[in-house]
Design a protein around this nucleic acid. Structure first.
Lengths: 148, 148
DNA sequence: AGTCTAGTGTTAAATTGTAACAGTTGCAAT
DNA sequence: ATTGCAACTGTTACAATTTAACACTAGACT
């Protein structure tokens, strides 16, 4: 998926999905937002805000951070907290999904799974402790099959 | 656990464990390392590097960051990446444990579970994609039973 | 005693992220 | 078509967070 995708196709279908989602939200998919989205979707590698700014036309940090915040809260990208970096979300259409991010520490590629059962179990175990879960972050660092 | 602990006991047993682990590692549990460890263990609340520095005697950032790095790599504390904060590890004796952190967004208390089966399942699913996991971060944000 | 490694102290700086506020644009309602 | 409002932009300046670098010191082991 991550590796053997026809990435032009992959990216343009993500773009279409993003446009649709913005429309549904009544938000505008403006120049900056589109540009940041395209940069993040350039590859399946995690990109830091700094990486993104290098490619931005307008280098002023607030522009980039605002776009990232928007895309994140619209569910179009993920913030990888353990790297402080961003990656396009593969399941943006699916509103309440919880991604499991598989991050290759060698090539920096990120894949995403939707491990529904296991996550339910985690949430259930938390509940048994009286904890009511709102947001779940699952990030796994390791090596992908190409980098073994 | 997190709430109804006799915290003096809780903290001092953590300290003893830390001393033992450092000895096993052949590393020194120096002044600064001990001090940072104590500050983190003061409570079961997540503390940022800045929070810690406020309580440090020597305020110079490198001192604190170095101690945090050491404690983290010795497995004595966890870095909560989604908050950029730290918390004492409740299972430090157990070398290859994978913590699931339950972070209350109201009171900032952090509890830790060891959800063996569910995590195995996550690792297994990753493996089926050809991904070999080395480090796992599971962080869940929500509200604890006292804050409901 | 000598030497080697781990740890310290210190300065300074890079990197990363935000506040604030005036200006502008798209869109909807009169 | 104007007006008015909310969303979005541009810009400056700053705050917060983290790291580099390097000379120095203490402890541990021949």
């Amino acid at each position: 998926m991550t590796k053997n995708c026809n990435h032009n196709l992959c990216k343009s279908s993500a773009l279409l999905a993003a446009e649709k989602i913005c429309e549904q939200l009544g938000a505008r998919f403006t120049q900056h937002r589109r540009r940041v989205f395209e940069i993040v979707w350039q590859s399946h590698k995690a990109m830091s805000a700094a990486d993104i700014m290098i490619e931005m036309d307008n280098k002023q940090p607030p522009i980039t951070y605002r776009a990232l915040d928007f895309l994140k809260s619209a569910g179009l990208i993920h913030h990888i907290t353990s790297l402080n970096a961003y990656i396009g979300c593969m399941h943006a259409k699916n509103p309440d999904h919880v991604g499991q991010l598989l991050i290759c520490t060698k090539c920096n590629n990120v894949a995403e799974l939707e491990p529904k059962e296991a996550v339910k179990e985690l949430i259930e175990q938390a509940k048994q402790q009286g904890f009511s879960t709102q947001i779940t972050h699952i990030e796994m660092l390791g090596t992908c099959n190409e980098c073994e």
